[in-house]
Design a protein around this nucleic acid. Sequence first.
DNA 1: CGAATAGTGTCTGTCAGACATTATTCC
DNA 2: GGAATAATGTCTGACAGACACTATTCG
Lengths: 277, 277
Amino acid sequence: MSEAEFLAAYDPRDYPAVAVTVDVVALTIRDDRLCVLLVERAAPPFEGFWSLPGGFLKQRTDDGEAYAETLEEAAGRELAEETGLDAVRLDRVHLEQLGSYGDPGRDPRMRVISVAYLGFGPQMPDPEPGSDARAAAWVPVADLGLPEGPDAIPGRTVSQRPGTSRRLAFDHAQILFDGLERARGKLEYTALATAFVGDTFTIAELRAVYETVWGEQLHGPNFRRKILSVPGFVESVGATTERGGARGGPRSQLYRAGDATLLHPALLRTVTEEQIR
Amino acid sequence: MSEAEFLAAYDPRDYPAVAVTVDVVALTIRDDRLCVLLVERAAPPFEGFWSLPGGFLKQRTDDGEAYAETLEEAAGRELAEETGLDAVRLDRVHLEQLGSYGDPGRDPRMRVISVAYLGFGPQMPDPEPGSDARAAAWVPVADLGLPEGPDAIPGRTVSQRPGTSRRLAFDHAQILFDGLERARGKLEYTALATAFVGDTFTIAELRAVYETVWGEQLHGPNFRRKILSVPGFVESVGATTERGGARGGPRSQLYRAGDATLLHPALLRTVTEEQIR
DNA sequence: CGAATAGTGTCTGTCAGACATTATTCC
DNA sequence: GGAATAATGTCTGACAGACACTATTCG
């Protein structure tokens, strides 16, 4: 579109035409459960509903000065505002763009395009609700009544509509669902799993990440063999845990994340027959 | 963000705060070359530069009536406007969201968030330039000087900056690069390749799609065995081509696309060592 | 006929899945 | 000691890659 045409079409009546928000699907694992960061909305629309943390893209500072942030910076800012995490801890969170949601009517106020980000982090403290929220919490995704586990297939182009037993505001159930699908898929061929554990970890902890996110049991010995055979996935620290397992067993070897981001060969889930469609 | 707070922050001076455009990376194969639809801009900024087809999200009809389109509808509309394709042909084009691009300064006029879509289609006619364009053409991506072929790895989180020998407007080189990466990756584990060929096709034609998009030679017999072993990928039509190959050879069996969208097991490229990072 | 291509058959190394076994630690 | 778990070893079936070979068609 030319500048002239743009200016011609630039009718003030058109504004506010479109607003842009950034929403974050922040995932972590607590007590062997996959959890997502949610906030309880303190004002309409959807007052009292839980929603993903997010907000409008900032165009100026709080002092009113002109200013622009990238989309990813906005996602990080929203995450920090809603969690009370400091920059150091936030630095450990892996952020990536999930997708944009812009159906007319998804926000009753006006036309809103939301750019969703997906974040993964190791166990984090309980969040401090931000100013727009009544509460904030890490909520186990299993409690939200979305389809989970083997139902999800990586790379599915069109996501199925999630069931919504505990409804989220706007289309956030759909966004969360898409984020979970993405996360499950990325475990297969990227080193994403290490983003969910601490700096050093045992193979069993890493396996717990896979089992928790995928919602299926994995075979211990085979998993170990597989992990160690992928070049650059993990490297040995040369130490063991202080104690063995709570109910017995030897001390585990400790590992740290390697320099690989992509796993080759990949760690594929066993598929049954839901590949068709 | 609450309604009250939103309204409080709603300062007219902020507008035009954000504009939303939709850009399309439309790919097809012509003469065994992977081509992308580009238009030559007829007005500043970047006048005379080639860019991806795209434009602002419509909020009202040409008559000025209120109206809203989904992001995907907007992508389809832009594609139709720039190609002169009718709805029937456009129906054969597979469209999916690629990602959003919103760095400050990517558009010199104002803050613009662009939602990029990726489209795949069988060979299509030469495009008719739309009103905002001086020209429109299917351009072989190899002529654009982007990194190609085995350099690209599926699932790479952070895309490397593409080289830009023939510069595209805005950050469209980056968007195109990301689209090509996505396309290469999706050939591995989805039935996307069938979107590039006609309703019936030979295994050799399908192989040509893979070879063209991936930029590497594949082994004929093994490719055939692999394709036919993936349930639901292709199904036999029971007929053969009218003639054999131009330089000899028997007639080929014809196939049509099956009902599978996901390939299992996947058709993986051979990776060398660029998995690390 | 000669060349090119479609399609079949076969071998081999690699790897995932299953299972058995040993060693170590907690209670 | 008994139970649970970490870690190692072994077997087998599936499959990718490589290659040889046959059949068919064009020029």
